[in-house]
Amino acid sequence: MDWRWDFTFDVVLPKMWEAAGVTVWATVASFVLALIGGLILMLLKTHRSPWISRPATEFIEFIRATPLLVQIFFLFFLLPDFGITLPPLTTGILAIGIYNSALCAEVYRAGFQAVPKGQWEACIALNLSTYRTFRDVIIPQSLPPIVPALGNYLVAIFKETPLLSFVAVAEIMQISKLIGAEYYRFTEAVTIAGIFFLVMSLIAAFLIRLVENYVKRSILH
């Protein structure tokens, strides 16, 4: 094996630095989209009318059962057919966001279901308003399971962003591929991409644990 440090520092790292920004932006934007989308899907899924809850349930199941990459390609090729032309990055963020909305919806639902039925009944017995019921009783109790699960999806989204390289978004993986193609050297770029993901994931996992403990301590004494 030969690892060239000059190549690493002069060519790979500067390009990777810019690409890391794209990766982080794609991660954050997709995550925010997923948080909001997940809430909407959860509300639809738990809606009283089966005409709303049933399609929502099947949509979630369908999204979860099919590969994100295919969904990205589908959106990428489909949207222009409807006259919508978006930059690949935006299309990719949309696809990752929708995909993870379906996953987050389940997290929210599981979180609310984890609150014992007696708590809802107590709120009715105390004649609390719906707003008060959620704000003071239900949400504080459902946060401890929800927060770490959402954190894990943030990390998962981060690790999904390399898929955007399939539609030529200039994120970390795409840049490593391009460097590889241009200089016929994959070793440095791909290895650094791997280390980048590994280190960021480990840091994120550590942070999630901190937040998890904080939430547990501050809400359930």
């Binding site: 390399p162 898929l163 993986m173 791909v190 991409a193 791997g194 993901f197």
Partner: peptide
Amino acid sequence: GTSLLVILFWLFFV
């Protein structure tokens, strides 16, 4: 910790 796509690339190209 790493992304599957990175692992695939690493195995195949590195």
